[in-house]
């Protein structure tokens, strides 16, 4: 089946899916997304305290998917023709990946400001999965 994401695997990270909750490291003060595992800055274990970021940030890398999206997004790609996917550096200084929404992705690029919004991501096995996308400011 490949890279299938089960319902429990989605559910256990809902804070990250809906609110981009990040982990603040009690050892070095750095941030890790998602808020689990070792700190990406200093590798400290069990040191992440969940923190809710503002949800605002800057695009640091972008791509526009025109073919070969993951199968979960085939319908979306067929409907939209292109999917903008960005890495956003949140103002707290941590990077998160996400889709662009409410815009033509060709108008967005590195350096542009975006804000996280909750959107429908995809549907699997009859369950609609919601998460975060990024809307240009």
């Amino acid at each position: 089946m490949g890279a299938y994401l089960s319902v429990p695997a989605w559910w256990r990270n809902l804070d990250g899916r809906y609110r981009l909750v990040v982990g603040e490291c009690q050892e070095c003060g750095g941030y890790t997304f998602p808020a689990e595992g070792a700190c990406v800055e200093c590798n400290a274990i069990d040191a992440l305290t969940p923190t809710e970021p503002e949800g605002t940030g800057t695009v640091v890398a972008q791509t526009i998917i025109e073919s070969g999206a993951p199968p979960e997004f085939t319908t979306l790609l067929d409907a939209e023709g292109a999917i903008g996917v960005v890495l956003v550096e949140l103002d707290e200084g941590v990077r998160v990946p996400g889709m662009l929404t409410d815009c033509d992705p060709h108008d967005i690029g590195r350096g542009d400001r975006v804000t996280a919004v909750v959107r429908r991501i995809y549907e699997q096995e009859g369950i609609t999965r919601y998460g975060t996308k990024f809307r240009p400011d």
Binding site: P34, T63, G68, V85
Partner: peptide, 12 residues
């Protein structure tokens, strides 16, 4: 769990 669910495969 995250990169792929943002819509990217390796090309992306």
């Amino acid at each position: 769990e995250w990169e792929r669910m943002a819509g990217t495969t390796f090309a992306g």
